[in-house]
């Protein structure tokens, strides 16, 4: 899963290598959050939603796209007005920008994919306080020009998205024997139909999301040893 998403992200900037728009530094903004500074596994941002809506791949995809849209919009707007925001009230200003964008996303989801929007329930609203968005606004968009801010938003949203989708694939595959609703375990294998296979219902329960993310971190850090913490 990881390599697929990474390739897609790495290819986009390569198309116009001569452009200063995709200078080395800007490319790093896109690729760094996929691994070395991944929002979920390294920066510890945006965990709440990542854990709660990863029972099905479809929900995870919709959530990732919503976060991507809100992040690009939020980073762009905050970066454009960064010089006129008084620093004392910047949190409220950021929250208002993000909340308006989330209301837009929420209304769009309700209009076009109502069943998914129902399943995500309060978690669409919680994109507002998804720390990944506030964190990047605070750490990046407030201090940088619009274009790098957009790249930073895309990079971080992709880094968030691939973990989300990876967790969802594991949970849906083992928990319900399907991916994106397509069942790949034949009905005849199930115990209820005389076979020997049973879905692992533990995978559908919330605590498994934490354990799956923990294992992803384990694999990632075993591969990328400079991320290992002291304790």
């Amino acid at each position: 899963m990881s390599t697929e998403v990474k390739d897609a992200a790495a290819e986009a900037p390569v198309k116009e290598p001569a452009e200063p728009l995709f200078s080395k530094k800007n490319k790093l903004l896109l690729t760094d959050p996929l691994d070395d500074s991944n929002p979920i596994t390294v920066q510890v941002l945006g965990i709440c939603s990542a854990l709660a809506i990863t029972v099905q791949v479809k929900q995870a995809v919709v959530m990732s796209l919503s976060v991507l849209a809100v992040m690009i919009g939020g980073n762009l707007i905050v970066s454009l007005i960064r010089n006129v925001i008084p620093s004392r009230i910047r949190i409220i200003v950021q929250l208002v920008v993000v909340a308006s964008l989330v209301i837009l996303v929420d209304q769009v989801l309700k209009a076009y994919v109502y069943d998914v929007s129902k399943a995500l329930s309060v978690f669409v609203g919680l994109i507002i306080t998804n720390c990944i968005i506030m964190g990047r606004l605070e750490a990046f968009a407030l201090a940088n020009k619009p274009w790098p801010s957009i790249l930073d938003a895309i990079g971080n949203a992709m880094g968030y998205g691939w973990i989300l989708i990876a967790v969802a694939v594991v949970r849906e595959a083992f928990g319900s024997g399907s991916i994106m609703g397509y069942k790949f375990i034949p009905e005849g294998w199930l115990i209820s139909n005389g076979g020997a296979y049973a879905h692992n219902n533990l995978m559908i329960l919330p605590p498994m999301a934490l354990i799956v993310v923990g294992i992803i971190i384990w694999i990632q850090r075993a591969r990328n040893t400079k991320l290992i913490e002291e304790h």
């Binding site: 923990g214 971190i217 990632q220 850090r221």
Partner: peptide
């Protein structure tokens, strides 16, 4: 590799 964040999740 599990130290810190990883073990906390688990």
């Amino acid at each position: 590799p599990l130290r810190g964040l990883g073990i906390t999740y688990i």
